[in-house]
Design a binder for these strands. Structure first.
Length: 234
DNA sequence: AACCAGGACGTGA
DNA sequence: TCACGTCATGGT
């Protein structure tokens, strides 16, 4: 019950967020950070094709422990190199790939991760991957798996990230030791009944995650975490 | 100058 | 299972 209050409170404050950003999107409601980041507020038709699905997956890997502005830079680098696609990246020299994704950090690891993911992605042949299969891919842990399922494939999997945990901790809804699966279950169970169908469920999960990040960037990025956060008053 | 960023993996206990 | 080290650039 309280979890859903957090959502409504955040939504009232910030409105729809329009994740996941796609760099080539040119719509009306994109100007969160100018043209650099292409969000699509209140447009839930994304991703619309295989290339956009791939771009979201790529971003999910590149953003691991990295700010998303760096991801946007890297995606633009790949795009300019004509390599924002599975084949484009495979046909590119490894060193060039590393140079393109350098802004994201961990470029040696992530270059390897991306290639590993591409083999997996091509084997799918357009099918939706299941969570267990995703987790077997080198590069994909629980959060990235949920990120890919929720934002690339519009599947109802709640994504937990460091910000989400920090907020739940601050509101004393969890303890420090909780595992990913427990937080995920807490969120999903708490939200049960707050949607009519699967489509609404996916939109709720997507917006909730984006709202948590947006709120955390302002109130949970520097210590002491949560200072001035209106969520404490719920 | 630390610290954080929309984490995952390998290792040894 | 879990605690800890490693990976690395960029912004504040």
């Amino acid at each position: 019950m309280k979890i859903y209050q957090i959502y409504t409170s955040l939504y009232l404050e910030y409105g729809p967020q329009g994740w996941w950003p796609l760099i080539n999107y040119e719509g009306k409601n994109t100007s969160k950070f100018g043209k650099q980041e292409a969000y699509h507020k209140q447009d839930y038709s994304f991703p619309r094709n295989s290339l956009e699905i791939f771009e979201v997956c790529l971003g999910s890997i590149l953003t691991q422990n990295t700010s998303f502005t760096s991801v946007i830079q890297s995606l633009h680098n790949l795009n300019k190199a004509g390599a924002l696609s599975p084949k484009g990246i495979k046909n590119m020299p490894l060193e060039t790939l590393k140079t393109c994704i350098k802004p994201c950090g961990y470029f040696n690891q992530k270059a390897k991760y991306i290639l590993e993911f591409i083999y997996f992605f091509e084997d799918l042949q357009g099918q939706i991957p299941n969570r267990e299969a995703l987790l077997r891919v080198l590069a994909i842990g629980e959060e990235t798996a949920d990120s890919i399922l929720l934002f690339a494939y519009n599947r109802p999997e709640f994504k937990i990230d460091a910000y989400t945990k920090r907020i739940l901790l601050d509101l004393e809804l969890i303890n420090e030791k909780v595992k990913y699966k427990e937080m995920k279950k807490l969120m999903e169970d708490s939200l049960e009944g707050s949607y009519q169908d699967e489509k609404e469920q996916v939109i709720l999960y997507q917006e909730f995650h984006a709202l948590l990040v947006n709120h955390a960037k302002e109130f949970y990025s520097k210590k002491p975490y949560g200072e001035g956060s209106f969520l404490r008053k719920l």
